[in-house]
Design a protein around this nucleic acid. Structure first.
Length: 207
DNA sequence: CGCCAGGGCCTCA
DNA sequence: TGAGGCCATGGC
């Protein structure tokens, strides 16, 4: 089982995915939008997240200050399409308050493990959301593991990987330490997972 | 109609 | 530490 080989065949089959999709223009706004998207997409399809983000934008609320100042009820209403909206409204506020202390520029310049510990201490940010923010918003070499990854790879990896970190390290130890590959690979796995739910044979075609 | 999405928290062993 | 319940909308 060679992860890089699989990456190349996925890339060839599906083409570049160019994650993370964002609409904001300047860098900090784009980073913030990625973080918001990472929280909103928890166990939710991206289509629904796009609606929620559009609502936030139309309400001029897709920024740290608005998230901090609006009450959770109001935010919940805006992000309703993304599901779990009461919880996610609180998560967004937790994160926005966290950024008051450690802003995106500061986080970007901190060592990877330090940022990871800080993010994981924010209530509402777990392993996957944390890694997505690290990789796609802060540009740090941190491989994202999601449910698709475990589902697709669990039966063809020899040793049994249990914890999130074991999964993450398996990929990081068997791939070149290349941020672009990390970004593209996770996106390709998600694409594979989506297609596999419609057509099971697509996985066996690849390996 | 039931299943499931680009998870995470809390509780209880 | 790990399994199970809970959060909730919308596509198919």
């Amino acid at each position: 089982m060679n992860p890089l080989k699989i990456y190349n065949s996925l890339l060839k089959k599906f083409g570049k995915q160019n994650w993370w999709p964002v609409s904001a223009k300047n860098k900090r706004d784009r980073q913030f939008e990625i973080c918001v998207g990472a929280i909103l997409t928890q166990n939710t399809s991206w289509r629904q997240v796009e609606k929620a983000i559009k609502n936030l934008k139309n309400a001029d609320a897709l920024n740290e200050n608005s998230i901090r100042n609006l009450d959770a009820k109001k935010i919940g209403l805006l992000i309703k399409p993304s599901g779990f909206y009461n919880q996610k409204a609180l998560k967004l506020k937790n994160f926005a308050y966290f950024l008051e202390k450690y802003n995106l520029k500061k986080l970007e310049n901190m060592p990877l493990n330090e940022v990871r510990n800080l993010l994981l201490n924010v209530k509402g940010i777990g392993n996957e959301t944390c890694n997505s923010i690290m990789l796609y918003a802060l540009n740090k070499p941190c491989f994202v593991i999601d449910a698709y990854t475990k589902r697709i790879f669990s039966h063809m990896i020899k040793k049994e990987l249990k914890s999130y970190e074991e999964w993450q390290k398996f990929f990081e130890n068997n791939l070149p330490k290349d941020i672009e590959i990390y970004k593209e690979y996770h996106a390709l796995i998600v694409e594979l997972g989506k297609r596999a739910s419609k057509d099971k044979s697509i996985i066996s075609q690849l390996f």
